[in-house]
């Protein structure tokens, strides 16, 4: 039953929420605006808000000078690659634990989660060493595998909580109607599991895209993704605000849009199902 709300109260709450919302979003908005300014306008005193000559020059310069698309492609390959590889390993695993739970299933799940707690810096040198030894340093394969392993516990956990919600009765019903295991999987389980798999995929692409410990420490030039691309603007290029903004906008835009679509799954995925 909805509570009676006075209009006055709604107006105040709306004003407060919008003010805070815009304040939180402001750095992103400012970055996007600045990316369309000239360098002079970007550091103008007082700052210019909307009344400037919009230009795309910064985007062109950033692309030409630091070859944005190569970094973008690296990010896409690493994020998508690690997610797909992760799903290939995680789907059978989560599936088996959700539908054929044994005595130790809970322990296995908890143990998998515990691997996520290992601080990366504790194994930094061995990973660098192994990568060098296998001649994989600064390659896509290395980052795909490392990021996949980083996120595998989250992928399995998310899938597990989704698969758990598929009613087992429906399988029995299908079986009684004479469905074979194959048609059971194709016609009954897959359609019910797909939404969960899709949102798991989305969240993990986001996590892999933004990962900034391994991507900074395991790449130099060839396989460096956007996190490293931006870090190279640390100094002194960072003082060219318009170009920094253009580079930043290009680095965050794709994932921001994906992120907005996956808000709900985010809660579930990152709390390992503890908050739904």
């Amino acid at each position: 039953m909805a509570r009676a709300v006075t209009t006055q109260r709604k107006v105040i709450a709306t004003a407060a929420a919008w003010t805070i919302g815009i304040a939180i979003f402001f750095p992103i908005l400012w970055t996007v605006l600045t990316s369309f300014k000239t360098e002079a306008q970007a550091i103008a005193d007082p700052p210019v808000w909307f009344g400037f000559d919009w230009t795309l020059e910064n985007y062109e310069v950033v692309q030409e000078r630091s070859n944005y698309f190569r970094f973008l492609m690296n990010s896409v390959i690493i994020a998508v690659g690690s997610t797909v590889l992760g799903l290939l390993i995680a789907i059978p695993s989560a599936w088996s634990m959700a539908f054929v739970p044994g005595k130790r299933t809970k322990d296995v799940l908890m143990w998998m989660l515990s691997t996520k707690m290992l601080p990366a810096v504790g194994v930094l040198f061995p990973i660098v060493l192994i990568a060098r030894f296998l001649d994989l340093y600064d390659t896509h394969i290395l980052l795909i595998v490392v990021l996949m392993l980083m996120n595998l516990p989250i992928i399995i956990w998310m899938l597990y909580t989704y698969f758990k919600e598929i009613p087992v009765d429906i399988l029995e019903a299908a079986r009684m109607d004479g469905a074979s295991l194959r048609s059971e999987i194709i016609y009954v389980l897959t359609p019910m599991a797909l939404p969960g798999i899709a949102s798991t995929m989305l969240l993990n692409i986001i996590l892999a895209w933004n990962e900034a410990f391994w991507t900074l420490n395991l790449t130099t030039t060839k396989a460096a993704p956007l996190t490293a691309f931006i870090a190279s603007y640390s100094s002194p290029e960072g003082l060219f605000y318009a170009k920094l903004s253009a580079a930043s906008t290009m680095a965050i835009a794709p994932i921001l849009i994906m992120g907005w679509f996956s808000q709900k799954q985010l809660v579930r995925g990152l709390t390992f199902g503890a908050v739904k």
């Binding site: 979003f25 900034a212 920094l244 921001l256 985010l266």
Partner: peptide
Amino acid sequence: ILVIAPFFVMPTVSALVWKNM
């Protein structure tokens, strides 16, 4: 949507934007 946005900004971007701008 406005409130959730910063979570999707990669750490290197948010650090540099705050630091410089």
